[in-house]
Write a protein that binds this DNA or RNA. Structure first.
Lengths: 167, 167
DNA sequence: CCCAACAAGATAATCATTCTCAATTAATCA
DNA sequence: TGATTAATTGAGAATGATTATCTTGTTGGG
């Protein structure tokens, strides 16, 4: 949302009764310097910090990352199997969604502003406050399709099962 | 209305080198008889089956549910913290999305056809094949807002957890 | 600069999910 | 139809991400 500096982060935290700590600052810094489109798991974040000579315990990583997600500073992504990823929560026009292949977990980002708009309308109608909206599109990627996924099936199988509305 | 019978399920499975088993049939049956909008975790599914006098091991539950999600028969939902939920993958116009409160995990469904349309367009543009698209909107529910989220919340207060069924 | 509350670090605990393996069983083909 | 083969089940152990606990260290308001 806001490009956070140490000061604005502190203000945000304090206004909720939480504190600015060197650890939280460093964690935010890592995400801010991440190439756009990258996301880290808790462990990857720990390694990154270690390499920078700023080791932070896994406990703190998990706590901070969850806190910042609840605040709306980070996005919690459920893309691949097994563990969560986090990325900086960027405002329009960098807000994006994900396409994930069920075969290989390949992830592709895409932008679509109207999805955010529609979510906002929906949410406000119900009296909720929007923090984030993530469209996760489950797919079969072109490579998997080329390899004959799913084996032995007519190539149009998925289309008939899939939720496409006019086909 | 639900396209799967024992026969079509068998055909679908066999075409991929998999088998129709009584367990898989029973599991599908549970989902088909679930009120619209309901979703079950692996454990809830096991309990349901137990109550019906058709106990199935947890291992098998997990395996089957994952298989059927990969096939596009079930949707795998990442709504609340900690565990996945599954629901029947229904075609348009029953396809829906979810709004989740980060404070209490309350879940509200909503319909929005244009999200599906746009996903489909996006996916095809990239040469992928669409299996499912789920918009998960992270929110603060009205109840939490009323209590002064985020700072004014009594430490052990939780919003009433209601899984409302329709908009 | 003091103190109460909050946070960090280390590690144990939890808990959903996956894996292992022996025993069964569904689908195929002779 | 019955043998054959490979998939599947069930039970429980193993895994692995995330949380909780507990002690010590810090933050920030008075």
């Amino acid at each position: 949302m806001i490009p956070y500096t140490a000061n604005t982060l502190k203000a945000e935290l304090n206004s909720r009764g939480w504190r600015l700590t060197p650890q939280r600052e460093k964690i935010l810094h890592v995400f801010q310097n991440l190439p756009r489109g990258d996301h880290l798991s808790a462990e990857e974040l720990q390694h990154t910090l270690e390499e920078r000579g700023e080791p932070i315990s896994l406990s703190t990583i998990y706590r901070s990352v969850k806190l910042m997600a609840r605040m709306g500073i980070l996005r919690e992504l459920e893309l691949a199997e097994g563990h969560k990823h986090y990325e900086l929560h960027r405002p329009h026009p960098h807000h994006h969604h994900h396409m994930v292949c069920v075969q290989c977990n390949k992830t592709v980002e895409f932008n679509n502003d109207s999805i955010l708009k529609q979510s906002l309308r929906q949410v406000e109608k119900e009296g909720f406050q929007l923090i984030d909206c993530q469209l996760t599109v489950t797919t079969i990627c072109p490579e998997a399709l080329r390899m004959g996924w799913p084996s032995g099936l007519p190539s149009n199988w998925a289309c008939t099962r899939v939720i496409s509305e006019d086909k």
